[in-house]
Design a protein around this nucleic acid. Structure first.
Lengths: 184, 184
DNA sequence: GGCGGCATGTAAGTTGTTACATGATTAA
DNA sequence: TTAATCATGTAACAACTTACATGCCGCC
């Protein structure tokens, strides 16, 4: 799988110039439900992209000033080219399902703990997503991209609702297994 | 994130001894909706696990015979220990959402193509999962693990249904954007 | 005066993919 | 007889994580 870090960066810079720290922060906030990047990828990649001519860097006064990156025309073209490329089939890895698959090795109470943690995490995610949605509806739409962003949020809401529904059914199943075990 | 390849292998071997090729095949079939491993990980890992004493290897006659691996008591303990460990927060990366987020850079027809492909792929997945479910209900349950496996399948069904529902809404949105563009 | 957040990076290590190589067996 | 699948690997590469290092700035 080809790396996509440069395109996340280009996408963010297509709105406005940012420094590396801001880029990381925005990825963490906006994309946290479906994407992540580490500093170890962002900073070296920024240098590389400058070398390629996809972005330019402007350093602040002296040594202390932060370095702000801006997208170039070529960068915009690269972004567009990538948008046209077929979406690579994502390889997701859900450890909780692996554990559930092998859960008969342990006892039901064990798995119940895992599912409860999973449920709590995704309840929180769902709340945040609903907040995002409300917020987005109140602010202006200068880049005419709100409908797309809303679609991404809706994806998050739908999948997280599916996670919650599954968690509740799984807990049901696990609890009835526990009761049966006690009764034996 | 610690690697989980050894535990997938242990889980499969906890049912019956297998060779490396079979292990890969079973992962591709049973876990394809939420897990994947390559030969490049499986074969070296098998050797390593033998060295650790988690599994034993028995080679067939001569050079041609295949090597069958079996789980040891220690391996069973390692598997149980891993089952108890908290589930690591999965970092999923969905390129289609990244593209949707930045879709205003291109035109709606572009994204429509991507979503249509996504929809078709997950319709197929959903069909396969439903087949799995029916099949599981007809066969015996010697390891008393069918309820757990069913729960994993249900996870797949629920999330894929969510994907389909999202795809349809997204297509709706994209088509109305296309019509508006034409009308301009 | 210290804590948290801002800001930039790197080195080392781990994990995972891809492409290739080899040869046996089996079914059309 | 030839294509597909079985079966086992490895080398090179690419991607990613983690932990650390450094220093600034503002505020309580």
């Amino acid at each position: 799988m080809a790396k996509k870090t440069p395109y996340v960066i280009l996408g963010l810079l297509s709105e406005e110039p940012l420094d590396g720290y801001d880029i990381k922060k925005r990825i963490d906030i906006r994309f946290r439900f479906f994407w992540n990047e580490s500093y170890g990828q962002i900073y070296p990649e920024l240098r590389n992209m400058v070398k390629l001519g996809w972005i330019t860097s402007e350093s602040g006064e002296g040594k202390k000033g932060k370095t702000v990156y801006a997208i170039t025309d070529q960068g915009r073209n690269e972004l567009k080219t990538w948008l046209h490329l077929p979406v690579e089939t994502e390889s997701l890895r859900l450890e909780i399902l692996l554990k559930m698959y092998f859960a008969s090795i342990g006892d039901p109470a064990l798995m119940r703990g895992h599912v409860e943690t999973f449920l709590a995490a995704h309840q929180k995610d769902l709340m945040i997503l609903n907040m995002f949605k409300k917020e987005l509806e109140t602010i202006e739409d200068p880049y005419q991209n709100h409908q797309y962003i809303l679609s991404v949020i809706d994806f998050g809401i739908k999948t997280n609702e599916a996670y919650l529904s599954w968690s509740q059914e799984a807990l049901h199943m696990l609890r009835s297994k526990e009761n049966r075990d006690e009764a034996k």
